[in-house]
Amino acid sequence: MLTFTIRRLVLAVPTLLFISLVIFMLLQLAPGDPMAQVPLTVPPEVKEKMREALGLGAPVHIQFFKWLVQFFWVEPQVLIDHIFGTTFSEGQLRVLSWQTRSPVMDIVVQRLPQTLWVVGMSYVLGVMIALPIGIYSAYRQYSAFDQIGTFVSMVGFSVPTFFTGVLLIVVFSVNLGWFPSIYDTTHKVTDWDSFIVQLRQMIMPVSVLALYNAAQISRFMRASMLDNLNQDYVRTARAKGLGEKTVVLVHVLRNSMIPVVTVIALGVPQVFGGAIITEQVFKVNGLGQLLITSIEANDLPMVQTLTFIFALLIVVFNLIADILYGILDPRIRYD
């Protein structure tokens, strides 16, 4: 198991390098000019100097190498400095956004809590809704509950989040006026009343994403339970006189959770990607919204770093899923 983990970790390094190269080369083709916003009165030689100050004068491979160094060497140092108060990174150039001229990672850190709150909460909620529904509808296959549950999960899976989000806004913000349609990220929770305000503004984005996630996961849970319910060991457990509750909730559930746990782990990075749309609908200024605005503003270092962070999440959670699978299922041997 340990050798497998180490091998996968080693293998992840070239994968990540290659992905960052792909993203970098794709962005190199960008037609936009970061100097487009500079007034025409600025003489061309000054423009040329500004271009070089952004690091654009260097050949492509040097630019790529510099980005790698900044992202993998300087930024961790900044993090260490921030935690321990040391000064490793002093005077070193960080990945700078062309839009704001401030370090990209600082902006990411500012935006992260909003995304984590909304997206993380919705994922946890989605899983918590999905598991009982999946278990019960598999246990009572073809019952009314199962039929309705399957239909609802099919609908939740098919209706895109940008439609459910807008629909909820129309119903609950425009017509009923219960919840605000715009997520206010400057809101601070200090006492009970402000907590209620925070809750009210979180309900809609969280429920939109939670419905979507719950639909997918409950389908997996149901299928996995159905696979296990007809196995021989279930008959054995019943034959030796165990209660129905023990059979289903201990024996079957533990076995069917193995694939579901890996699916849940694999879904985490996709949720971050999918949240781009939900954040746009509810005007949450999280990572997704940051990506959209930086794409529109041609802010290449920001786009590069953000896209790479998404890729990093995917690789890391793939690894976690594989390792979890090995730990949970003793039949799996990675040798």
Partner: peptide, 23 residues
């Protein structure tokens, strides 16, 4: 295939649309 599966698709789609629209 694994490599493509590890790419963040929606961000890349956005980037691709932005880059190649004008040409």
């Amino acid at each position: 295939t694994d490599l493509f599966l590890a790419l963040p698709l929606l961000p890349l789609l956005l980037v691709m649309v932005l880059l190649f629209r004008e040409p």
